[in-house]
Deep mutational scan, measured.
Amino acid sequence: ARCQGVVCAMKEAFGFIERGDVVKEIFFHYSEFKGDLETLQPGDDVEFTIKDRNGKEVATDVRLLPQGTVI
């Protein structure tokens, strides 16, 4: 199932997405972002798939959504 959220933090090689369905942040590695990383910034709406890696939830297949998609 695809989830939606808003990019809330960006570091050197990874970032965090504030999920739209639950009050929780989820980790994503930049290699999982399908698009131009140069244009990705905090506040952007994205959709993603949640996978379990070593007992921790991570966002994979992260894709940009049109602004205003995530309420």
Score class of each variant (00 low, 15 high):
Glu12Ile: 05
Ala59Cys: 02
Ile71Tyr: 11
Ile26Asp: 01
Ile26Cys: 05
Val6Met: 13
Thr49Ile: 11
Gly43Glu: 00
Arg53Cys: 11
Val58Gln: 09
Asp44Arg: 12
Glu32Leu: 01
Val22Cys: 11
Ala9Arg: 06
Ala9Tyr: 04
Glu32Pro: 03
Leu37His: 07
Val70Arg: 14
Asp52Gln: 11
Pro42Gln: 14
Asp44Phe: 08
Gln4Tyr: 13
Ala1Trp: 06
Phe27Val: 14
Phe16His: 09
Phe27Leu: 08
Gly35Ser: 04
Glu25Phe: 06
Ile50Thr: 06
Leu40Ser: 02
Glu18Cys: 08
Gly68Asn: 04
Ser31His: 11
Val62Lys: 01
Lys34Ser: 12
Arg53Asp: 14
Lys51Asp: 12
Thr69Gln: 15
Glu18Ser: 07
Lys24Asn: 06
Gly68His: 11
Asp21Tyr: 05
Val46Cys: 04
Thr39His: 13
Arg63Asn: 11
Asp61Arg: 02
Arg19Asp: 05
Ser31Cys: 07
Gly35Cys: 03
Glu38Trp: 09
Gln4Phe: 09
Gly68Lys: 10
Lys24Trp: 02
Asp21Ala: 07
Asp45Asn: 15
Glu47Arg: 03
Val58Arg: 08
Lys24Ala: 09
Lys51Cys: 13
Gly35Phe: 02
Thr69Glu: 14
Glu12Gly: 09
Arg53Val: 13
Glu57Ser: 10
Thr60Lys: 04
Glu32Tyr: 02
Glu25Leu: 10
Cys3Ser: 15
Ile50Asp: 03
Leu65Phe: 13
Phe14Met: 07
Thr69Ser: 14
Pro42Tyr: 11
Ala13His: 14
Met10Glu: 00
Tyr30Gly: 04
Val58Asp: 06
Asp52Met: 14
Thr60Leu: 05
Thr60Arg: 04
Gly68Ile: 05
Gly5Trp: 02
Asp21Glu: 06
Ala9His: 07
His29Phe: 12
Asp52Ile: 10
Gly5Lys: 00
Val6Lys: 14
Gly55Trp: 04
Lys56Pro: 04
His29Ile: 06
Ile71Val: 15
Asp52His: 08
Gly20Leu: 09
Glu38Thr: 14
Phe48Ile: 00
Phe28Trp: 02
Lys24Pro: 06
Lys24Gln: 06
Met10Tyr: 01
Cys3Met: 15
His29Tyr: 14
Ile26Leu: 09
Pro42Glu: 14
Gln4Pro: 08
Glu38Ala: 13
Ala13Cys: 09
Ala59Glu: 01
Thr49Met: 13
Leu40Arg: 02
Asp52Asn: 15
Asp44Thr: 08
Thr39Tyr: 08
Tyr30Ala: 05
Pro42Ser: 09
Glu38Asp: 14
Ile17Cys: 00
Ala1His: 14
Ile26Ala: 04
Asp45Tyr: 13
Glu38Met: 09
Ile26Phe: 06
Lys11Ser: 06
His29Thr: 10
Glu47Met: 08
Ile71Ala: 12
Ala13Trp: 07
Ser31Asn: 12
Asp21His: 09
Lys34Ala: 10
Gln4Thr: 15
Gly5Ile: 01
Ile50Cys: 06
Gly15Ile: 04
Cys3Gly: 15
Thr60Met: 06
Ala9Ser: 07
Asp61Ala: 04
Gly35Lys: 00
Leu40Cys: 03
Gln41Asp: 04
Cys3Val: 15
Gln41Asn: 10
Val23Ser: 14
Gly68Tyr: 11
Phe27Ile: 12
Glu32Ser: 05
Asn54Trp: 04
Arg63Gln: 11
Ile17Ala: 02
Val46Met: 00
Thr60Val: 06
Val23Lys: 14
Lys24Met: 09
Ile26Lys: 02
Asp45Leu: 10
Val62His: 02
Lys51Pro: 02
Val23Phe: 11
